[in-house]
Amino acid sequence: MYSEKVMDHFSNPRNVGEIEDANAVGQVGNPKCGDIMKIYMKINDETKQIEEVKFKTFGCGAAVATSSMATEMVKGKTIDEALEITNVAVAEALDGLPPVKMHCSNLAQEAIHSAIADYYNRKGIDPTHIVGCNGDCACCHHDHGESEE
């Protein structure tokens, strides 16, 4: 049911772990729904480049694989470039996800947004106009399922 790429990223996930001196941390999802993704970034204040990125995920194979792929995709990108990464792009980079697992790719996208929002919040800058939300993505992660049937 999963593509080879998904299985590859699931069995050898890239960028697993924490960054102790991260300046951007985002967590999305809900244990009740069965998936949580936490993403750590180190963003260069001058260049706005994401220099380091790590993640931790509680979730299914697709949740782990999308976390791994999303971190690969944002690594080295600027904030603006990272914000342009869509859930569809993450899913496509994995050669697709089963329809019932598409919400896992939303999780990855939301985690990136949540971390970037955190970066601005730490600086006392309201991230709403940059990220498109206030970064409290654990709350807005409500597109779980129903719409996919």
Partner: peptide
């Protein structure tokens, strides 16, 4: 605790073990 069943099953499968889980991801529902 702290882990999700489908991931567990996939990893067991890679080790040649076929088992089952009650996680949402394996039940096809949420």
């Amino acid at each position: 605790e702290f882990i999700e069943g489908e991931s567990l099953l996939l990893m067991l499968d890679m080790q040649g073990i076929s088992a089952s889980s009650g996680s949402a991801c394996t039940s096809g529902s949420l």
